[in-house]
Design a protein around this nucleic acid. Structure first.
Lengths: 169, 169
DNA sequence: CCAACTGTAACTATATTTGTTACAGACGTT
DNA sequence: AACGTCTGTAACAAATATAGTTACAGTTGG
């Protein structure tokens, strides 16, 4: 149903910034981790900035970092920042108002879909960026007890853009 | 996020059949209420039939009706019949595996998205087609205490296909 | 002043859903 | 058995939405 990976990418981006602590990240660096174009990232960063989740600085030595601590950013904040519409859509064209069902199904469906949306939001409200970073930690190999840097600086091979193997895609 | 109205349409279609009781409906009648093409409806009916929610009969005097009573069809059944994928998608292209965040964010996100999906399913499992019909009733004007028929038989004007006014679209 | 950034517009590419036309096959009716 | 009315389905066109690209103005540190 969702054809959008905006939420996933937004969480990824902000997780990078939480990981980087206070150091501002350049859109180019972020794009390399997400494996997409830097403009796509900058567009998303603008939305996240509008919702006061990140602050960006223009100019040389610029970049973006979290606007507040990771424990104060919930996944609901992120969701609301980048996914405007609810989980489901109603009919593309309005049903026939001359049909007793068609004329009223929208009202009933809206109630149901609102319940669904609320349930989603409740789940997302219960997890913070900090939680995401914590869940990430055990997977990451560290050589010296300190975090590995977000990205190495050297040139890296482009990751091939094959279809993800995840069952979700 | 969801660009698909499949769930909404499926609920609409099945509600029509619940409303029509045992009388089989033709795809053309259903399409008129939904305000779309009959082939779109037939395609969906095939999916609903595969999930054993409706039974269809070919040939003259054919049509489709519910495979079981409305109180034994949950919205979750409908959702699973017509919406294959979860609520959110992961990255369109896999993240950079050379980045400590990129390599593991998918795993963490999958856990979160599974939680979201479960929450959605719990909500949908708690409502049946019968409930939808009940919620519909108070809105429908009946002239004699009996239900109005699903659609009048006469020619009707085509409903203009303007954008729905619902905030959800 | 220059180089390195962000912000943003305009456009293309890709993916997905929806709508349409066409037709084979099923099945009552006559 | 022929006919008209249905479903099932293929093949394709249109509409919509997301993602990716190029280009460039404006900001800022050095």
């Amino acid at each position: 149903m969702s054809t959008s990976s905006r939420f996933a990418v937004a969480v990824h981006v902000l997780t990078l910034m939480a990981w980087a602590d206070e150091e501002p990240l350049k859109s180019e660096q972020v794009a390399e981790s997400v494996n997409t174009n830097a403009v796509v990232i900058r567009r998303m960063l603008c939305e996240l900035a509008e919702s006061n989740l990140v602050v960006s600085q223009t100019g040389s030595m610029g970049g973006s970092k979290l606007a507040r601590l990771p424990e104060r950013i919930t996944l609901l904040d992120i969701y609301q920042a980048v996914e405007s519409r609810g989980v489901f859509s109603l009919h593309r064209h309005p049903p026939n108002p001359d049909c007793p069902v068609g004329v009223n199904i929208g009202t009933v469906l809206n109630d149901v879909l609102d319940e669904v949306d609320s349930a989603v939001e409740r789940v997302l409200a219960n997890m913070t960026l900090r939680d995401v970073v914590s869940r990430l930690q055990p997977c990451v190999s560290t050589t010296n007890g300190k975090r590995a840097s977000v990205m190495t600086n050297g040139k890296r091979k482009q990751v091939p853009r094959v279809q993800s193997v995840s069952a979700r895609n």
